[in-house]
Each structure stands twice: as C-alpha cells, then as structure tokens.
Design a binder for these strands. Sequence first.
DNA 1: CTAGACTTTGACATCGATGTGAGAGTCAAG
DNA 2: CTTGACTCTCACATCGATGTCAAAGTCTAG
Lengths: 117, 117
Amino acid sequence: MRIGELARRTGVNQRLLRYYEEQGLLRPVRRPSGYREYGDADVEQVRRIRTLLAAGLNTTTIADVLPCTADTGNGLAAACPDLLTDLRRERDRISRSIAELHTARTMLDAIIEATSH
Amino acid sequence: MRIGELARRTGVNQRLLRYYEEQGLLRPVRRPSGYREYGDADVEQVRRIRTLLAAGLNTTTIADVLPCTADTGNGLAAACPDLLTDLRRERDRISRSIAELHTARTMLDAIIEATSH
DNA sequence: CTAGACTTTGACATCGATGTGAGAGTCAAG
DNA sequence: CTTGACTCTCACATCGATGTCAAAGTCTAG
C-alpha cells in the first residue's frame, strides 16, 4: 500500500510516517516513481511505534528495540545484546510512570468524587 | 523558607518554582526584600504539581485543579464546578495512558525475557 | 565594612515529536 | 491530453516544560 492508505489505516499523519522512516523505524520499498510502498505488516509496526512513543521512548531507542519485537512474538529470540541495560532502565521508568499515573488518577478521582458527591 | 530550601526539599529547580508561581500554581509571600517566602505546605503542593505534570496535565489545568486538592483531603468539598468535565476527560486520558504503558512494558518484558533467556 | 552565598528579574536556548505549506512530480480516469 | 487525487522533498513553525546565563539587589558571618 502507499502512504495515504497506511495513514488512514493507522490514524497516523503521513508526515509522521515519513519521519519514522527518516528515524529508521520504517523501511518502505520505493517504486520507480519514488512512491513509498508499505506492507501489511507495517500497520502493526506503526502501532508498536506509537505504543513505545507513548511510553516515553524516543525514536532512537525504538529503532534499537523494533528489530527485536518482530522475533520475540514468534519465539525466535534474536541476538539483541547489550541494549538490555537500556531496556531494563526503560521498563523501570515506565513502571515508575505507571505508579505516578495511578497517584494522579487517584487524586483526580478524589476531587471528582467530592465534587459530584 | 526561601526558594533555595524549597528547591532542595523537593528536588525541583528554582527556575521551575518561579515558573509555577508565574502559572499560578504557587503563591509565596514576598518579604520586604522581594524574596519569596514559602510555607511548609508548599513542599506537598510542589509534589502534587509534579505528579499532575507527570500525568500529562498542563499548568493551566493544574491551576484549576489545585485549589480543590487542598480540600478533598480534609472532607471539605469545595465548590469546584464545571471543570468536572475536564477532570473526567483527564482521568480517562490517564487511564488510557496507563493501559498503553502496560502494553509497552509487556512488550519490553517480552524482549528482555527472550534476550536474557 | 566586606566577602560570599543567596535571591531577583529577564531573556534566550533547547528538545522532540508533530503540524503545515509550497512547489513539483506521478498516475489513473475521462 | 487533461484533470484531480496522490505523492515527493524541503523548510519552517509550534508547543510547553525546562535549562542556563547575566546583571543587580539582599543578607549574614567574620
């Protein structure tokens, strides 16, 4: 599919899809015309990117992580070496973030509860 | 206490404490010299601010929310009227965010697990 | 009184993902 | 051939919290 369809199917702006490619997160094939040609798998890939971005990872880190995600699902554990340290750090950061969000939500809930009595 | 101590006790940069005041999140008294004078309660206040910021609320929204947080704890439910809609929206956004973070963490865990087998 | 630590205001920089627009090329349908 | 929808690249703007620096005023210990 071309970029327009991918944008439609993922809800992600074309500008961003190009940006993700620039950052090495997507590798569409090029037609003779120069048009980008994406595969069906890229729909899932974009979802993963969005999830990791939402989790606070930057595109550089995601670029390191993505090659691994493809494998882990299948059972084929790729050789993803020393970025393990980074991954653990990210995971811990996410855990802290989740805890913080819980605190914040509890706070809001208390206000909502008290206000709407 | 003055700004230096508050910064030390909260771990928040002085620059930010001034910024929070500018945004209406803190209201330190001024000494004749112009120095800001904070109360002990402001330590907690700053923590709340940091939590809500981390949860993705912007300073404007936080400025609306904070006056309420002081009360809900005590039982005195202040009249925090129509920002209720905003609060529910924020809470839902936070919930979605938590869900996304869980997804991301699971993803990272899978990779970590598969890699360090 | 003086030195040094602290504070003040104000301005400018940064960061990274994201939005937007212009000008030009591609392509399929009529 | 022409039109309209799609795509390309490139450049510039934005947003909001945060960092940092400069010049000047305040205060306290010696």
